[in-house]
Design a protein around this nucleic acid. Structure first.
Lengths: 155, 155
DNA sequence: GGAATTAATATGAATTTTCATATAAAAGCG
DNA sequence: CGCTTTTATATGAAAATTCATATTAATTCC
């Protein structure tokens, strides 16, 4: 019998708190895939950056950080490591020489392509298990919520 | 005009990938509240632990780590800090002396109570902005998904 | 009932992340 | 134009996190 009370109202809080549910679902669902990414030789943050680059190859550092949901200085260091490993390359933007654009190498793109196929299969399985209406609605709902939370739009 | 292509299919991947949407929504929505938690003198992971303790005061370390979505050794260190600050206290479980149970102090509970009220108001606003049917369905869908991802159940 | 096994927590070194800021380039403006 | 402000990225020290393992207690099973 696990205890479960709260705020003197006697109802649990966290397990039905929207932000907790989002974090928990994200955490657990991603964990399933992260084992796979690691097995492919990528650290989790690197997988994230790689996946973002597939959508926006040549993105500048600031943009890539935003899309990857991480801080700029962290992204810079992750890109350092990915460049050392040969998955990406950096090129200064001739239009604006403050900017550094990050590109997938052929190796990086190949790696990404394989993992994305696996990711899509994994997603399909999750949605199948979820079933029916919920499976149809979850992504549109999340997209609507993201648009609302992220006015400039990340996508 | 932001580029947006992928896997030779020409469609974007990441911005419509379920696990990305979950991470992105979680990240952005939580960021809004985290500023608030910090202003109240808590680090983000501490707020998470505090919120979990409100549901399960006296949880053992392993359980609290799982509920808080973090690794045990990390939780131990966060609890160290929270104990130093007087928000929680540890007590060894007499039933099983390997176990350490973590309890809110009065100070910790008061802090939690205030923040939870704010969190609930924040959630209400998010759902209101989301509107209508989506707002009604998102939590049940996330709960179903969590139950599916987390067989033993975290709640 | 002791030896081996399993479980719960803590600890320390190595790694990663954050925070503040340096550096450098572009934009604004008087 | 020069000067100030803003934007983009990198960097380094400090802080947080991870990973492997030590420690201690309970459980299992001869």
């Amino acid at each position: 019998m696990t205890e479960q009370k709260t705020d003197a109202s006697g109802r649990p809080f966290v397990v039905s708190y929207l932000l907790y549910l989002l974090a928990a679902v994200s955490h657990r669902a991603s964990a399933e895939f992260h084992a796979h990414a690691r097995a492919a030789g990528l650290r989790v943050p690197e997988w994230r950056v790689l996946a973002c680059l597939v959508d926006e190859d040549g993105a500048m550092v600031t943009r890539l950080a935003r899309l990857s949901l991480m801080e700029q200085s962290r992204l810079t260091k992750i890109v350092d490591h990915m460049a050392e490993r040969g998955f990406v390359s950096r090129r200064s933007d001739p239009e604006d020489r403050r900017r550094v654009r990050v590109f997938l190498t052929d190796t990086g793109r190949d790696l990404a392509t394989g993992l994305i196929a696996d990711a899509q299969a994994h997603e399909t399985q999750i949605l199948k298990d979820l079933g029916g209406e919920d499976a149809e609605r979850i992504k549109p709902i999340l997209e609507a919520l993201l648009a609302q939370l992220d006015p400039q739009g990340d996508g």
